[in-house]
């Protein structure tokens, strides 16, 4: 579960200009210099007042609940009353639960299918944008959806894909008299996937562009002198030099895709009792419904077991990604 030191920085810089992505030196030997000046000694005394509050808040409100989740997942518990220790029973139970398998499968679909689509599109966009006129405007516009709550897209989709809605009225003149039922329970999830691709690609394009913009132009000139084709330039210059940015993006998407909740929750205006149709559930929705929907006795054990499995999925994938993406960083 060790993320790269640079990763969150990219996120921050993504909102900024590409040129700003020059991170500081990796592990600067700061502070503790041989001979230790008095300011270093003084600084060290600040440990408790400086780090203390952040440490306490983070531990109490984040790490303790995370450990608590593992603990609860080993119990049968309805939220109140006694907790009964059942060991790994909850995990066995959710794996026999059709609903959980469906939800987890959907999460995997988001992670891999939507992820692949986003990456292919984002990379293509990056290549188009690289030396396009007006690239700043285009980039700023396609980044903006990242700042909007996904709820908004879910609600809008409900309006656009209504039986009498805009898509059908667009299709009618084209001779489509019998358009598919967009918001039928089986069709919602594919629609969610498409919506996510549309709204997330811009964000990753921005990050990738920050990486591509760092490549100094003399590499391209070298390519031209050596007579490299566009494909060769892509293969031997652009890809190797942006490889670490790709790794960062993959990790970011892994983490954020497993959390996807709100767009599913309201997609298409949500049906009936406020719980979306089971065909479109993700692991996060499964956790929430099992604990808080108020429809049946809350099953905190099963709900947290599902959440802990999501965490395990992230951990495994991040470790694998880091291993797969590990190469000698190209210094330039």
């Amino acid at each position: 579960m060790t993320l790269d030191v640079k990763e969150p920085r990219t996120d921050g810089a993504a909102a900024q200009s590409p040129g700003s992505r020059k991170a500081g030196p990796r592990k600067p030997q700061r502070g503790s210099r041989p001979g230790g000046s008095s300011i270093d000694a003084q600084r060290k005394k600040l440990l408790v007042p400086f780090v203390g509050p952040a440490f306490v808040l983070y531990t109490v409100l984040f790490i303790v609940p995370a450990l608590g989740a593992v603990w609860i997942s080993l119990h049968k518990w309805a939220g109140s009353g006694p907790m009964k220790f059942v060991g790994l029973d909850n995990y066995g139970r959710i794996f026999r639960d059709q609903l959980f398998l469906l939800s987890f499968g959907n999460t995997l679909l988001l992670l891999f299918v939507v992820g692949t689509a986003i990456f292919v599109l984002a990379f293509a966009l990056t290549l188009v944008l690289r030396d396009m006129a007006g690239k700043k405007i285009a980039r700023n516009v396609i980044f903006f959806p990242h700042l909007i709550n996904a709820l908004v897209f879910g609600v809008l989709a409900g309006f656009i894909f209504n039986p009498g809605g805009m898509v059908n009225s667009l299709l009618a003149p084209l001779g489509v008299t019998d358009p598919p039922k967009w918001l039928a329970q089986d069709n919602i999830f594919p629609l969610i996937m498409v919506t996510l691709v549309c709204t997330t690609t811009g964000y990753f394009t921005t990050i990738l562009m920050a990486g591509v913009d760092r490549i100094p132009p003399y590499y391209y000139e070298d390519c031209a002198l050596a007579g490299a084709s566009a494909f060769q330039r892509l293969r031997y210059v652009i890809l190797p030099l942006t490889w670490d940015v790709f790794g960062t993006c993959a990790v970011l998407w892994t983490i954020s895709s497993v959390k996807i909740f709100e767009i599913v929750w309201v997609f298409g205006g949500s049906s009936g009792a406020g719980v979306p149709p089971t065909q479109s559930w993700t692991a996060a929705v499964y956790t929430y419904v099992n604990a808080f929907s108020g429809q049946s006795t809350p099953a905190y054990g099963a709900a947290t077991a599902s959440a802990v499995l999501s965490l395990a999925l992230i951990s495994v994938l991040v470790v694998l990604l880091r291993r797969a993406m590990r190469r000698d960083a190209v210094e330039f």
């Binding site: 984040f62 609940p65 995370a66 609860i72 996060a284 956790t287 947290t304 959440a307 999501s310």
Partner: peptide, 8 residues
């Protein structure tokens, strides 16, 4: 992810 710490 947020859903892990939700219930605790």
């Amino acid at each position: 992810p947020a859903q892990v710490i939700l219930i605790p």
